[in-house]
Design a binder for these strands. Structure first.
Lengths: 121, 121
DNA sequence: ATAATAAGTTAGCTTCGGCTAACTCTGAAA
DNA sequence: TTTCAGAGTTAGCCGAAGCTAACTTATTAT
């Protein structure tokens, strides 16, 4: 099971919520993303199945190493792309939205290239 | 019917093929994009229906004004994003691939911001 | 004239990832 | 103790956009 764009978004959300709160449940993920409980339930099942997260008896979700890797990658891209767009004069809201979509569609190569040049923008 | 990412790709392809050849048929679009005839057939039907293209009795496809607008927008983004990535040191193939995906996910605002700063990269 | 090829369409399948409705289960409150 | 709220799951729908198989139709070649 290779991870899809949607899976990446869920993992990134779990990562963000984990940093903010002491625990993350499906319901929190759904609220944050604006998705229904069944949608989250299925996604969580798939991610668990794929080895990206674990869920304990309390329903608390944790990222595995692999899951953390994916989530951090997305999060790093998100931050850097947002930064870049803001530096270029884009308003914060638009920058965040665009970064959120672009982060899933850019190759490692391109991302590294942007990262290397970010300071000269 | 609002245009989807897939529709944008078809329109851009039709635009590119129109500049290269004297006519564009469904079969040409399919060959260029690597899609099957039925896939193209349906997409062409939807785009025709949506007022983005016209198809004459010969099966020759033309972009309407609206279709041209969308196609040119995508094409411009494609070129500019490819340029940008290449300037940042990304190899041409990767740059083209990434540009092709990003072009559908970036807002007008962000694109204009990149365009304004492209020369200083 | 017949047969073969090319282009397009139709029917119907698949996966992805949303959704609602309706169920279960658990823990807290009356 | 009974009831109710919150969280999660199950079943099943939907649209988007690929696909194959099999058909039609028109042109070209024998």
């Amino acid at each position: 099971m290779s991870i899809q764009e949607s899976g990446e978004m869920y993992l990134e959300t779990i990562y963000i919520l984990s940093k903010k709160n002491s625990f993350v449940r499906s319901i929190d993920v759904g609220e944050y993303m604006g998705y229904s409980k069944p949608s989250v339930s299925r996604a969580v099942g798939l991610l668990k199945n794929g080895g990206y997260i674990t869920v304990d008896k309390e329903g608390y979700i944790s990222l595995t190493d692999v899951g953390t890797e994916v989530a951090e990658k997305m999060y790093e891209r998100h931050k850097l792309l947002t930064d870049l767009l803001i530096k270029l004069g884009v308003d914060e809201e638009t920058a965040t939205e665009d970064a959120c979509r672009i982060e899933h569609h850019i190759s490692d190569k391109s991302f590294e290239a942007i990262k290397k040049h970010i300071n000269q923008f």
